[in-house]
């Protein structure tokens, strides 16, 4: 099978952009966390792509490492969410936002 590597990276870019839009436009922190997951996933895909381009296992190794990063981030993020939920009652980032930008 052949896939032009550019097309693969277009997919990465699309996913990353969708994630960014979600991160910037959603108000609910849970959705922002999901958007961030999509972005990290785009990064993971990029390494798989590059790895398969060079026929090396290194890409997949990095993928596994990214997996552990994502797991740790999600764990921390959700823990924070639980704590925030207790403080505020819901997850609206605007209610969080009492600090001036």
């Amino acid at each position: 099978m052949t896939v032009p590597i550019e097309h693969g990276f277009v997919l990465v870019a699309l996913l990353w952009a969708i994630g960014l839009v979600g991160l910037l436009s959603r108000k609910n922190t849970l959705f922002m966390l999901m958007s961030m997951e999509i972005m990290l996933n785009a990064g993971a895909l990029a390494f798989i792509l590059a790895g398969s381009l060079w026929q090396q296992a290194d890409g997949q190794v990095i993928y596994i490492l990214i997996l552990s990063i994502a797991a740790a981030e999600v764990g921390l993020g959700l823990a924070l969410l639980i704590r925030l939920r207790q403080h505020i009652g819901d997850l609206d980032i605007d209610k969080l936002d009492e600090m001036k930008g």
């Binding site: 990465v12 990064g43 990029a46 390494f47 792509l49 060079w54 890409g59 990063i69």
Partner: peptide, 13 residues
Amino acid sequence: TSLLLIGFALLYA
């Protein structure tokens, strides 16, 4: 971090 990842992936590719 995702920017960093994609950047490194491009360099690797």
